[in-house]
Design a protein around this nucleic acid. Structure first.
Lengths: 173, 173
DNA sequence: GATAATCGTTAACCTAGGTTAAAAAAATGA
DNA sequence: TCATTTTTTTAACCTAGGTTAACGATTATC
């Protein structure tokens, strides 16, 4: 059984309305999600209700809270910015399939490796770059991001306030 | 073949002097390293030579540059703060072993999942916490860190300058 | 044990980004 | 379409942290 077959057999397809949560911070949730259609944000809220955006998700992307998969609670919530269609796989089923099938395990390892690369990149940007450098890099990688995502959300993804992002955008060159 | 057997069979043991690099930023390096003895730092340098510390490594920890494993170059360097003994495994051998053996693949998936959790945590701290909150959290998790690591290096791990860390430490409460 | 190098602290000054608030612009909805 | 909500901009003021430099305290090195 390869990855696609697993998805065919065990994948659960679900639709979500715009402005709804797939799961919330603090939930239990043992699923890995694959985005089929739509746009989402993964976000943290602190005690004061302040929002921090971990990532945006577009068709083809996937996500899970690794804390929650390992028996804990979701450290972040997953929120639909547009009407969204997801495919979800139970982590237990994925692990079982991996244990019984080397080809499938290999797909999972590839998935986790690509996740590792993304996280390594994000850590690098947050640790080593200024907000302005992070903004330029984001624009370079996703030139049409502002068609999909509000500037407020882009700011919270960059780790700054919307006011600060507006300043960066209009800074005299 | 389980994980320990793989390590026994293919693991290469190596010793490094204090102040030496295991690999440098920009190198090719297809190994996964396991720390047996010693202390290391994984660090980035920018064009100006400014250092940013990705992580510290102690016995039991493991590391690899996921970019380099995927055919790219090491995005960071690995530097010994003390005389160090490492065990290294070629990623190609690991992947081959995983493809041929479900039990072993499962160990690799566990390893990658624990890596994912660590990176999720680090991303959260860099995105959502202030430097002072990050410092307190580090002290709570590793109360003896300042016995092992200089304050300069702790500052660069937190993403601030040594001067700023000194200020935080001596801030009137 | 003497000398050099590194580390930690302090001070003065600077800058990026936070906070609040208000107004303009844009998107959403009845 | 008109009204309402949300987003973006701008301004004034504030704070955390950066920069540079000096000095004493440790640590290494010979």
């Amino acid at each position: 059984m390869n990855f696609n077959e697993l998805v065919q057999q065990f994948g659960i397809r679900q639709c979500y309305k715009k402005k709804s949560y797939v799961f919330s911070q603090g939930d239990e949730d043992n699923y890995i999600y694959f985005v089929l259609e739509g746009v989402l944000k993964a976000c943290y809220y602190d005690e004061d209700g302040k929002e921090y955006i971990k990532s945006f998700l577009f068709p083809g992307d996937n996500i899970a809270s690794s804390q929650a998969l390992s028996g804990g609670l979701c450290s972040f919530g997953l929120y639909c910015l547009k009407e969204t269609k997801l495919l979800k796989l139970s982590y237990q089923q994925v692990r079982q399939a991996a244990d019984n099938n080397a080809e499938f395990a290999s797909s999972i390892i590839d998935l986790l490796m690509s996740f590792a690369m993304k996280k390594e990149q994000r850590e690098f940007e947050l640790l080593c770059l200024s907000a302005e450098q992070r903004y330029k890099k984001l624009l370079a990688k996703s030139p049409d991001i502002s068609q999909q995502i509000t500037q407020n959300d882009i700011a919270r993804y960059l780790g700054i306030t919307p006011v600060a992002l507006s300043r960066i955008k209009h800074k005299p060159r």
